[in-house]
Design a protein around this nucleic acid. Structure first.
Lengths: 237, 237
DNA sequence: CCAAAAGTGTTGAAATTACACCCATGT
DNA sequence: ACATGGGTGTAATTTCAACACTTTTGG
């Protein structure tokens, strides 16, 4: 129990059952054309050596969102990442330690930004999505759910940008979508579609890392995007 | 605290903060062309007389889903209703009684089926969606969230059928969609669309309640629907 | 000069929208 | 006979999917 004084004058609900609340983060990254997930190798018993998602118990005086932000910053050094609640995992016996409900949250991070030293210090590892080890408890299910959500969400909201550096090329964006949906797309149609939304700003710079010709860099126009959303636009990719 | 014996040999998480968990149900019904919500007038202090959603604390030995089913059956007499988790409401100070996280769940029920006596006995009332009174705590937000979800969900999964009687007419179905989306639709296009999915079985009976000519009754083909979903079909309405 | 990735348009098919009249029947 | 809601088809538009070649440049 936190040793801060409680902001409630008394506990009106004493006759009910309190339950432990945890939050587990399904953290996606995108690097070298591969979708990756940040997992964590347990260094203490029980289940030492087993892989799990990154998570934490929720404290009495913090919201679930704050708890997730806290662990995320602790391990990656990043603030202000895109994060969204997935669902609760609330089966009575899901956790052998005690009754504990976990709230899954998935996060998208720019893999170029994170603090590698911090990540290693905490025993966290970026795993290619296709080569994930088995995870503890119901964390495998959480990962599956998160991918499903990411796929659905990316269809009608341009969240893909959260996984790319601030400046990116159209082919990079296409690679990301191909990694998310695990299928090839036609480059002409893809370009046409994403440009048609009018939320990409073409820059006067080229990225020459992946080709001799070089590809123009773009950035995402958040303001324009907000306007369009407000006006009720659809963003199916 | 429930006085059953705990299925856990010991509490491994003693040093963490337990929190109360509640679940609140956003219960939609459809009656006489109007989308309705089942709300509840508090008959005890605090906030006696205020309206709230129907909810319950989650017990140590029941899942959140079970808790929601329990209150739903208690109040409507119905089992096996369509219900789905919406999201958690987890702000630290959302409940002045004590730290309590609520898990919102929305349910769709056939308004023809519920047990009216039970509903009245519990002080519950069907309110037209457009005339809802103010609700306690953050329940107004839950309702708003649930409507948003219902609208999104109804676009790609035929959950509308959950709100209609087993046998229904196409005009009834259209009325429902018009109530959900608050806009008029073209009857020819609507009919074409819903029939094109091939999940409606036309019956040899007519419903004559709303017209002299009478409209053919249909029922929903759950098996066919499952097949189509398995084969990866899209159901945008 | 050549390998490798970037960039660009057109065409046919399919889906979506808009739109107006006849039908059946209870009163 | 008439008012009421049920039922039907077609044409115009838009969106989507398929498809291949030219450009640039570092090595």
């Amino acid at each position: 129990m936190s040793n801060k004084t409680s902001p409630w004058s008394k506990d009106w609900y004493k006759e009910h059952d309190p339950i432990y609340i945890a939050t587990d983060c399904i953290i996606f990254g995108f690097d070298e054309g591969i979708l990756k997930l940040l997992v964590f190798k347990r260094r203490v018993e029980p289940q030492k050596g087993a892989y799990s998602l990154i998570g934490s118990f929720v404290k009495l005086n913090e919201s679930v969102t704050d708890a997730a932000k806290r662990v995320l910053e602790e391990i990656t050094g990043l603030k202000n990442v895109f994060m969204e609640e997935l669902r609760t995992y609330n089966e009575v016996m899901r956790d052998p330690g005690y009754r504990c409900i976990s709230i899954g949250q998935y996060a998208l991070i720019r893999i170029s930004d994170y603090d590698n030293e911090l990540v290693e210090k905490h025993g966290a590892i970026w795993y290619p999505f296709n080569e994930l080890p088995e995870l503890v408890l119901d964390h495998d299910i959480m990962v599956k759910d998160a991918l499903t959500r990411l796929r659905r969400k990316a269809r009608y909201q341009p969240i893909g940008f959260e996984l790319l550096p601030e400046k990116f090329t159209i082919p990079q964006l296409q690679n990301l979508y191909e990694a998310i949906y695990q299928k090839q797309m036609d480059s002409r149609n893809f370009r046409k579609k994403v440009l048609s939304f009018g939320v990409l700003i073409k820059l006067n710079e080229k990225d020459k890392l992946s080709s001799k010709k070089g590809a123009f860099l773009y950035k995402f126009d958040y303001d324009k995007y907000q306007q369009l959303v407000a006006s009720g636009i659809n963003f199916e990719v």
